[in-house]
């Protein structure tokens, strides 16, 4: 199979992302796939800063900044306006972090998904409130250090994909910037489907994960290979498809993925074992869903 990455660039250089930011590469890839007939809705998140201060903007498409909890509702409003004005060919994409999606924005997102509003909702999940300086969110994994979990986060990461699947939206997918072909294919697919599309991107954050910036793509790949963040699609909330990097795919132990990140440095062997058990059981759960879909 030949998958091409479009040459078209809709994200300018000179944006304000940190080195090694998974969020900026993800936006770059998403906009390559969607093209310029796209309106972007950004809620409060790192990207509010990354795009640049007034009067600058790093993207080559119209952009609406909006309040933290309003990605789902503001995008619904734009979609409604475009439809009534006869501009149905324009794609609307909401873009929010894990805080804006798992926590404060989940009501508006759930509302929009229930109404099956025709737009793409992208969550670039860096697993904490990174823009405010690394505070835990319900997207933060168990065991992670953040400034508000100074010892260790004691709760599991919210299963956002299951929540979205429960809305029976036409399309939901997990994406990793380390797999650009898969990434582009999924955005193109999302663009071609009417209704609410939910894109969950695991987005490494060197300052928040306490990793060095050149390791972001390696970490992204290891998250997929270890089953911490498997790549899959859910159609209509029930039909699961796994997008394994290889045909004989088996998940690798999480040890290396964990040991590369300062946010997990305090974990002892027992705790890492507990994490591994969780990852394995979630992976098996996913496999069962594939079987019964």
């Amino acid at each position: 199979m030949r998958n091409e990455i479009p040459l078209e660039e809709n994200l300018n250089s000179g944006h304000l992302a940190c080195p090694g930011c998974g969020g900026s590469l993800s936006m770059r890839l998403a906009l390559k796939a969607l093209g310029r007939k796209t309106y972007l809705v950004l809620t409060a998140c790192c990207w509010s800063i990354i795009d640049g201060p007034f009067p600058y903007s790093a993207v080559k498409i119209p952009l609406m900044h909006t309040a933290f909890e309003t990605a789902g509702s503001a995008a619904s409003g734009i979609r409604a306006a475009l439809d009534i004005l006869g501009k149905k060919d324009i794609t609307v994409m909401a873009w929010a972090g894990d805080g804006g999606t798992f926590d404060i924005g989940i009501q508006a997102l759930s509302g929009a998904a229930e109404r099956n509003e025709d737009f793409i909702y992208s969550c670039y999940d860096n697993e904490a409130y990174m823009n405010t300086g690394i505070q835990r969110s319900s997207g933060t994994p168990w065991g992670a250090w953040t400034t508000t979990t100074p010892e260790s986060k004691g709760e599991q990461k919210k299963k956002i994909m299951e929540i979205m699947a429960a809305h029976r939206i036409p399309y939901a997918a997990t994406l990793s910037p380390a797999y650009p072909e898969d990434f582009i294919r999924k955005y193109k697919k999302a663009k071609s489907i009417k209704g609410t599309k939910f894109m969950h991107i695991l987005s490494p954050c060197p300052p928040g994960w306490k990793t060095s910036s050149e390791q972001s793509m390696k970490l992204s790949r290891m998250a997929v290979e270890s089953g911490v963040f498997p790549l899959y699609e859910i159609e209509n909330g029930t039909k699961y498809t796994l997008n394994n990097p290889t045909a004989d795919f088996k998940i690798k132990p999480i040890n290396e993925y964990i040991s590369m990140q300062g946010r997990f440095r305090h974990l002892n062997k027992e705790q890492i074992k507990f994490m591994q058990e969780n990852v394995t059981s979630e992976w098996q759960r996913l496999l069962r869903k594939l079987k019964y879909a």
Partner: peptide, 14 residues
Amino acid sequence: HSVMAASIGASLAG
């Protein structure tokens, strides 16, 4: 809250 956010989006889109 979503009413006003959607109205803002709609107005900004023309």
